[in-house]
Amino acid sequence: MEFLKTYVLRRNACTAVCFWRSKVVQKPSVRRISTTSPRSTIMPAWVIDKYGKNEVLRFTQNMMIPIIHYPNEVIVKVHAASVNPIDVNMRSGYGAKALNMKRDPLHMKIKGEEFPLTLGRDVSGVVMECGLDVKYFKPGDEVSHKPKSLTHTQAASLPYVALTAWSAINKVGGLNDKNCAGKRVLILGASGGVGTFAIQVMKAWDAHVTAVCSQDASGLVRKLGADDVIDYKSGSVEEQLKSLKPFDFILDNVGGSTETWAPDFLKKWSGATYVTLVTPFLLNMDRLGIADGMLQSGFTIGSKALKHFWKGVHYRWAFFMASGPYLDDIAELVDAGKIRPVIEQTFPFSKVPEAFLKVERGHARGKTVINVV
């Protein structure tokens, strides 16, 4: 989701990391070729010209409409987009070194060349043009291909948080619909976008879910299927957890001090796993550079994993992973009625800065969505 009216999407583009089902995996070439002639008209967009606080967001009506540069790209007319906490952090420069390298891996953009920069992870819309190598989509397809039961506003709320949770639970945690029944799962930070999705997918796989959130969000998480709810504002979460049985899996959306005590509530020597989504990976690269940052991150995860291994549990980091097949699986669960979007608030395209401020304040109860069309 970039905050603009149209959008170039290709499988290997870092600014297009979330989309409904893409099988466009052919190796890009340097040809500029598409199903229609290139366009050169302009469109409105929200961009930043430097990193900083919310005032750096700037509205322009003179952004050029993208054209097809590679035969595996599609151009999407954006109908809705959502705002994630990482978008707010990136507005302030978080992850700039690593993401700039991914945007231009051959030439490694120098500081400042990324501007004007559009921000965002999620998008739902309609395909306008396709590169000639694109076989899975055609103009007019709803991106890409979104669950049939959802509106564009609902669909735009899911991809980034869904794939982040799916990465942590399935790819890193090893849980799936075949082995999850009866497993005891603890979700820290359960009322946000990732947490609300994680509750639903774990319940769809018949796990027993304990959700940690504030009391005013308890009704929401129970409605999503949480079996037990712990209010972190009513006293020590550690003390409250002591009255419960140990867990097979912990998903940590909070980070900080939680990782010093949360793994202690896992079943020992049973393959139980603690997975955190709050890692220093991009911060290390921002601070130390790409090579040293990756080296420091590798040392940190290795030492922590080894320490917890000797305690009888697994310690892991998880990150968002773009995956068309995973989105297909998620879309099936959505259309089967087992997962529903949780949207806290929607904003018109003219109020993107207000949406950023809403997310920046935290204490989310689901997602914040921008209606572009």
Rank of each mutant, 00 (worst) to 15 (best):
S22K: 04
L163I: 01
G182S: 12
L220R: 11
G235V: 08
P71K: 01
P85S: 03
F356Q: 01
V313M: 12
K138N: 11
S124N: 06
W20D: 01
R121V: 02
V212N: 01
E114L: 06
P28A: 09
S82L: 09
V237P: 06
G225V: 04
P28Y: 07
L106G: 10
L158R: 01
G225M: 08
L333S: 05
R31P: 01
L244H: 14
P348H: 10
H363P: 02
L282K: 14
M294V: 10
D228R: 14
A336L: 08
S157C: 07
L277I: 11
V369E: 08
V194K: 13
S214A: 14
P325D: 09
V143P: 00
A155S: 11
A331W: 00
K5M: 01
N12W: 13
L132M: 12
Y7M: 13
W269C: 11
K367E: 05
N253W: 01
V359R: 07
D264K: 14
D264R: 14
M294H: 07
S34E: 02
T196C: 15
H79W: 01
S297V: 04
K233Y: 01
P139A: 09
S214M: 09
R365P: 00
T60R: 10
S350V: 06
L306S: 14
I86E: 01
I110K: 15
G255H: 06
S350K: 13
C180I: 11
L175F: 15
A331K: 03
N12T: 14
V24Y: 03
Q345A: 15
A165I: 04
Q240G: 07
L224S: 11
E344H: 10
S34Q: 05
I343A: 10
T273F: 03
K242L: 13
